[in-house]
Every structure is written in structure tokens, then in C-alpha cells.
């Protein structure tokens, strides 16, 4: 069964139709990149998959392991194994990072009817992932994302990804606000999490992220639909020629 099956998806936000018949199938182990001009609907796609309030599916379907996502709340989708690495991770003053991580892990456990994580087990897990991703310990003592640099925010999101062990990792414009070194560190983190049973959906305007998180498939999203699909070479082609051709096609 496909991990994610999107069929003829039409979706709108505030009465405006953004996705106009989008179809996409992602299987476990695959890395897909969605590229496209600004305003094509890239972020809308990630919002619709993850269940952000305000985004409404009007037609078509989004199935995750055969389950209709339209019937699940955002937190339920996350518990099922969908993870969104935010373009701009949100600062939450007053909520301690460690408390937040533990709450998230326990939420998932509760969803599956499991016991809460033992405090020692949690610390062990966190320490091992911090080491794996080369994250500074003191970040965990701070409020969520508050005072983090752009690179730290992305790395912190990758740490959450490592802790929550999702099946589908959606990277929304991961390169936003990052210099090349910060980008490499964040991408390296993502790569350490790759495995045959997990898939990645990489949403990006620029090709540079795909040098580090190398896709199996590249799709061009324009005018709310996928207008072209190919292998990783398509990304290089887009980098060279730009999106003009597709913008015209979509219009």
C-alpha cells in the first residue's frame, strides 16, 4: 500500500481555491521533491496534509496508509506518523523544550493506548538523539525555539523528528533562512533518519537543498497541480531554466 496517496485533490483557504486537482503517490523509502514558483500551492499542500485549521478539502482525497486524513485532527495525523518540519518553527515562550518533547512523545503513546514514557527512558532517548544530531544540550533547557538561531530552530525540528519517529517527513522550505553550513547540518540530520520504511516529502523553491537530501522523484507544482514529474535531474533543469515555462502553462 502507498504510504501517502493524494488523488485529484482540490483545496481552498479562505474561499480561494489553491490546489486544483493534485495527485501524488509516495511509497515507503522514497524521497519526493515538490518544486515550484511562489504561489503555486506548495505550502498549502503541506498544510492540507498536516491538517492546519483553515485549509479545506473540497474534492478528492488524501489517504495515509489507507486512512482518510480528512477525518483526522492535526494531532491524530501526527500520531499516525506524519511530521512537518516547519518553514518557520514557532517560538513558544514559557514552554520548556524538554517538557514539550516529553508531552509530544506521551501524546503519541496515549494515542496507541501505551503507557507514558518512563522519565529515565525519556532522558536516555533524548540524550542519544541529541548526540546523533550533534545538538547543544542547553537548547533543551530553553523555552521552545525562543532565542534559537534559524539553524538551531531547524535542527530542533529535526530532533523532534528523531524522537517521534514518523513515517512521512515533510520538509517545508527547509532552506529558508539558513546559510549553507546550517543547511548542511540540518540536512545531514534528516539523512541520518532515512530508512526503507520512511518517506520524505521535500517542498522547496530552490534546488540547493536537494544536493543534500537527494530525491528519487521531482515534481513541478504550478497553478495548483503537478505539471511535470521526473528524476533528480529535473531539479537541475529547473535551477537552470527557472519556472517561467510552467507559470505560463499554468496560466
Amino acid at each position: 500500500m502507498a504510504l501517502l496517496a493524494i488523488k485529484d485533490l482540490r483545496a481552498r483557504v479562505e474561499e480561494k481555491e489553491i490546489l486544483k486537482g493534485l495527485s501524488l503517490t509516495i511509497n515507503p523509502g522514497e524521497v519526493h521533491a515538490i518544486m515550484g514558483p511562489n504561489g503555486a500551492g506548495k505550502s498549502t499542500l503541506s498544510s492540507v496534509i498536516t491538517g492546519k485549521p483553515g485549509y479545506e478539502i473540497t474534492e478528492g482525497s488524501v489517504l495515509f496508509e489507507g486512512k482518510d486524513l480528512a477525518e483526522l485532527a492535526a494531532n491524530e495525523r501526527a500520531c499516525e506518523g506524519i511530521f512537518l518540519a516547519f518553514q518557520y518553527p514557532v517560538e513558544i515562550p514559557g514552554v520548556n523544550y524538554t517538557t514539550f518533547l516529553k508531552t509530544a512523545i506521551n501524546a503519541k503513546r496515549k494515542y496507541f493506548g501505551e503507557e507514558e514514557i518512563d522519565a529515565m527512558e525519556f532522558l536516555k532517548l533524548m540524550k542519544s538523539k541529541i548526540k546523533l544530531l550533534k545538538i547543544a544540550d542547553d537548547m533543551m533547557k530553553r523555552p521552545v525555539n525562543v532565542g534559537f538561531s534559524g539553524g538551531e530552530k531547524k535542527r530542533a525540528d529535526v530532533l523532534q523528528m528523531a524522537m517521534l519517529d514518523p513515517k512521512l517527513m515533510i520538509l517545508d522550505e527547509m532552506d529558508s533562512g539558513l546559510d549553507i553550513d546550517a543547511l548542511r547540518i540540518a540536512a545531514d540530520g534528516v539523512n541520518t533518519l532515512r530508512s526503507p520504511d520512511k518517506a520524505i516529502l521535500c517542498i522547496t523553491h530552490y534546488q540547493r537543498l536537494l544536493d543534500y537530501v537527494v530525491p528519487d522523484f521531482v515534481h513541478v507544482l504550478a497553478g495548483g497541480r503537478i505539471v511535470k514529474s521526473g528524476g533528480k535531474e529535473l531539479a537541475l533543469e529547473l535551477e537552470e531554466k527557472g519556472y517561467t515555462e510552467f507559470e505560463n502553462a499554468a496560466a
Binding site: 494531532n75 513558544i92 514552554v95 514539550f100 517521534l164
Partner: peptide, 21 residues
């Protein structure tokens, strides 16, 4: 939404945010 996107249900997420405030 950030908290819910990490699997935390709405009530718990609201509680965390209210408590933090």
C-alpha cells in the same frame, strides 16, 4: 498548531500554552 502538529491534542496544547502564559 505547532504543538498539535507534534501529536499533542488540542486540550493539552491549550493547557500548556495557558500555563506558560
Amino acid at each position: 498548531f505547532y504543538l498539535m502538529a507534534r501529536g499533542i491534542d488540542e486540550e493539552t496544547a491549550l493547557a500548556l500554552l495557558v500555563e506558560a502564559f
